[in-house]
Structure formats: C-alpha cells, structure tokens
C-alpha cells in the first residue's frame, strides 16, 4: 500500500474532503481562506504559488487549496486537480470587465477529466462593494445553467464581512458527503 493509496483510505476514514479554490486573480480566494482560518485579512498579497489549510467543520476535515489566479499561473492549475472533491470558484462580483474571461476559464476547467466528479460552488464574492452584481446576474453571466456535468450552486458572499461563506461551505460539504460518505 503506497502513499497514494493511504491517502485515499484515510480520506474515507477520517472524512477528509479536498476543496480546490480557483478563480481569476484578485477574486478574493486567499482572503476567503484566511477568513476561514481566522487569520488577519489586511495583509494579503497576490498568490504566486498556493496555500493549503486544514480546517475542522462538522466532523469533516477540510483541506482547502488556494491557488494563484494570475493568467501566467493558470496553466499550473492542472497540477492540483488530482482527487479534488469540491471546486470553489471565486468571482469578483464587482469586476464586470472580466466576467467573460471568468466564464471561459470556468467552462474550460469543467471539461477537465480529473475534475469530473467534483461538486462546484461558485462564490459571487465582494457583495459588500456597492457596484457589485448580485449572484443572480453572475449566474447568468457565467452561463451556469449550461452546466450539466457537475452539481453546482452559486452563492453571493463577502470575504470581508464573512457573509454567506458558511452557507456555501455547508452546501458543498453536504453535497460531497452524500456522494462520498454515504455509508455513515
């Protein structure tokens, strides 16, 4: 039994969930992660590589991966697909200019074979900003209704205030758990 098998088994046993958080740069991924982890969110700089944090929640162990979203880094996203249970796609709801780009990246990501089984949660982040689009409009702009290959949900939120973050996480965990840990 090698490391990679051990990881799989352990995951079952200890109710481990791997969440991969992606999205364009400046969307607020790292802010969300730090918020989850109870860290200071005032001193965040763009992510050049990635961060992993493990969090306990409702008896699950969440391994959250936050990977940098700058264009030059996107080709490396594929390195992190392996054994992902849930994909959290973070959108800067105030960045209307780049919604098209955002849509394309998301849809091409969903074609990835290694993400085939993953649940998708879209965080329409930065709802606290005055000019931000509501989640309904983001849903249309990203053509989420076209997605037939994954379970998905969109959820407006704010990493700064913490609004709705829990709601989204609870949903994605429920969805994953009903798939993976049906035995319990």
């Amino acid at each position: 039994m090698g490391l990679l098998t051990i990881l799989k088994k352990m995951k079952q046993k200890e109710k481990e969930v791997r969440l991969l958080m992606l999205g364009l740069d400046n969307a607020g991924k790292t802010t969300i992660l730090k918020k989850f982890n109870g860290e200071d969110i005032d001193t965040i700089s763009p992510t050049l590589g990635f961060n992993i944090k493990t969090l306990e929640h409702r008896g699950f162990k969440l391994n959250v991966w936050d990977v940098g979203g700058q264009k030059s880094l996107r080709s490396y996203w594929r390195n992190y697909f392996e054994s992902t249970d849930g994909l959290i796609w973070v959108v800067d709801s105030a960045d209307k200019r780049r919604l098209q780009d955002c849509k394309q990246e998301l849809h091409s990501l969903l074609l990835e074979e290694r993400l085939a089984g993953a649940t998708l949660l879209v965080f329409a982040n930065k709802q606290d900003l005055p000019g931000s689009l509501p989640s309904e409009e983001i849903r249309q702009a990203l053509e989420l209704d076209e997605i037939k290959s994954h379970h998905w949900m969109i959820c407006g939120c704010s990493a700064v205030t913490g609004d709705n973050l829990l709601l989204g996480i609870d949903w994605i965990i429920d969805d994953i758990a009903s798939r993976i840990f049906t035995m319990d």
């Binding site: 989850f36 109870g38 969110i41």
Partner: peptide, 16 residues
C-alpha cells in the same frame, strides 16, 4: 485550533 465555524464567528481577527 482551526475550526472553520469558530473562526467565522470571531468578530475581530486574531491570529490562530
């Protein structure tokens, strides 16, 4: 300690 819920509930940020 790294409980997501506790952390989200925290009103002001303090390092873990």
């Amino acid at each position: 300690s790294r409980s997501l819920l506790d952390n989200l509930k925290k009103t002001q940020q303090s390092p873990a």
